[in-house]
């Protein structure tokens, strides 16, 4: 008896999910951040964000196909976090780090918040 562990499987699946998102295939929600719109899959959002998990497990909200975020949320920060959800890569531009961290706090992405904190501390002269 053996088990074959495909070490690339998780990243292969994530790449495919990102391709589906790029092609707007089976995306089922639009996230509105100020005036910008982002299409995504609810399951990916729920898997990565405590806020979206809370929203979409609520029986009254799970069928919504558009969600507006707090107008204070930075659309660029959200775009970077959405990209992270679908690629596992978090782009940290110095000019946006606070916006990214505050957006991660809002989205309840605690591990990303911790990582941003550590990055800021290590970058502080």
């Amino acid at each position: 008896d053996s088990c074959i562990q495909f070490t690339r499987h998780a990243s292969d699946v994530l790449l495919n999910l990102n391709r589906l998102r790029s092609r707007d295939i089976l995306t089922d929600v639009t996230i509105l951040v100020n005036r910008q719109q982002f299409r995504a899959h609810k399951t990916v959002l729920m898997a990565c964000s405590g806020l979206f998990y809370t929203i979409f497990t609520d029986s009254h909200k799970c069928n919504l196909n558009a969600i507006s975020l707090d107008p204070k949320v930075d659309p660029e920060g959200f775009a970077i976090l959405l990209e992270f959800m679908y690629t596992s890569r978090l782009t940290l531009k110095e000019s946006l780090i606070m916006a990214i961290m505050n957006t991660a706090i809002y989205l309840q992405m605690d591990h990303v918040v911790d990582t941003c904190h550590r990055f800021i501390k290590s970058s502080d002269p």
Binding site: S2, F6, D12, L15, N16, R19, S22, R23
Partner: peptide
């Protein structure tokens, strides 16, 4: 899976969805 012989497969596991058809 304790006691089961685990073999690591490093290659691609599934098809790649193209950027467009």
């Amino acid at each position: 899976y304790e006691g089961v012989n685990t073999i690591k497969e490093l290659g691609r596991s599934i098809h790649e969805i193209p950027r467009q058809d």
